[in-house]
Write a protein that binds this DNA or RNA. Structure first.
Lengths: 223, 223
DNA sequence: GCAATTCTTCAGGGCTCTTTCAAGATGACG
DNA sequence: CGTCATCTTGAAAGAGCCCTGAAGAATTGC
């Protein structure tokens, strides 16, 4: 669950925002002054900050300059373009002029949070219940993690890259040859067997179909 | 130098934007239709896209859905809040209504580009219980300070920059080569061992997972 | 139905990769 | 020069993986 900090001394607007955000499933923190805000940010680490500029004590600009690594959306009654520019260049991630549409605010919040998560861009290869994370080199079957050896991984990856297509044993050997140079037709059978067992234990069905006299293929998911 | 793609069929606005951006030191690409835009994005890889919604042939929304990994700022004459929300949730990084202030546009462009680089600027690098202060080059595990040698620091930093991703030993050697030129595969193992011991002593678990025959990766925090 | 062939599985041996302990080499600093 | 921290290297123990042999099951052809 994501946490959002609201830094605004206006009780009415703050309550309204808090209610809207809570209804969207966010966890909400409140601060009513600059110094309070800094303390709050240091203690808890929110995922995003909504910052009003008119604060008692410390200016919003000053608060902004202290916030590092957390996206800040500035909310302000000031509509002057110069202010906007200064704040955006000063570190704000976005700027909205009061009064604002709450739907748009939620959308812009979503943009900032989405951006944070997209840093770890995932690369997946899926086929039926099977899903390989290419980056972490890990397989999940029906959500369960399954440990694979290097050869097993290479075999399954090749099969999943060509779903529903028969892969001849010789081709299979050829393609995984880079990883395991001395894999023979005999040992390949063993690897297939081991792979089947692991998948069976995790997923409850036999995903690998043997094509008699030729090789193997990934079984049709909806069969 | 950063490259920005302008996707707009309006010659006048496009020229104006192009001039402003060029004056700011950006390299500018142009496209005048959706299909042209997709081709352009595939060939060159701009750092940012300015997308007009009124395009001949393909709708701006459609173009947007094809763009992955590059921030898109939508420029549109449509001021309807519903449109804004739909586009922001649909992947746009920002939305500006024509006519817009070029200063503000430049500021918002700067925000998006800054965000892209923010990995390097971040003062902290965290992954699970581990937290590195990049400025003081210090590591804390569950709040406890841990002293690392130069090589250990380089290794752990690289692993933490790619959490949950397998790093081949050769890659690891390559990337930390700048700090320790004569680190071999053999000595790398020793460093990993030492690093593990320190982390274990401080955090109580083994954060570094070995991927047999390949390399290492940082263990999933919530596992 | 029966034999021949191919495929699957079990179990064991051997090999490679990995880890760790320990000791030597290198270099900075007083 | 001696100490300290760091990096490298050697060797042995341990773990994991791959290959092979043999027996049982499945498929094909007659």
């Amino acid at each position: 669950m994501k946490t959002i900090a609201i830094i605004d001394d206006d009780q009415y607007i703050g309550d309204m925002l808090s209610e809207v955000l809570a209804k969207e499933g966010f966890s909400v923190l409140r601060a009513y002054s600059g110094t309070e805000a800094l303390y709050l940010l240091k203690e808890k680490k929110p995922d995003l900050v909504l910052l009003d500029l008119m604060l008692p004590g410390m200016s919003g600009e000053e608060v902004l300059s202290y916030i590092k690594g957390i996206p800040v959306i500035v909310l302000s009654a000031r509509a002057d373009v110069k202010d906007k520019i200064a704040l955006l260049l000063g570190g704000a991630a976005d700027y909205m002029t009061k009064p604002f549409d709450t739907g748009e605010l939620l959308a812009r919040i979503a943009v900032q949070l989405r951006r944070r998560d997209s840093l770890k861009e995932a690369a997946f290869l899926t086929a039926g219940d099977l899903s390989i994370d290419l980056l972490s080199r890990s397989l999940s079957v029906c959500g369960k993690e399954v440990r694979l050896t290097r050869t097993e991984y290479a075999i399954l990856k090749l099969l999943m890259e060509n779903p529903e297509r028969v892969i001849a044993r010789s081709v299979l050997l050829d393609r995984i040859g880079a990883d395991t140079p001395d894999c023979t037709e005999r040992s390949l059978k063993q690897h297939i067997s081991n792979l089947r067992k692991k998948l069976q234990d995790a997923g409850g069905m036999d995903y690998i179909e043997t094509v008699w006299g030729i090789g193997f293929k990934l079984r049709d998911p909806e069969s």
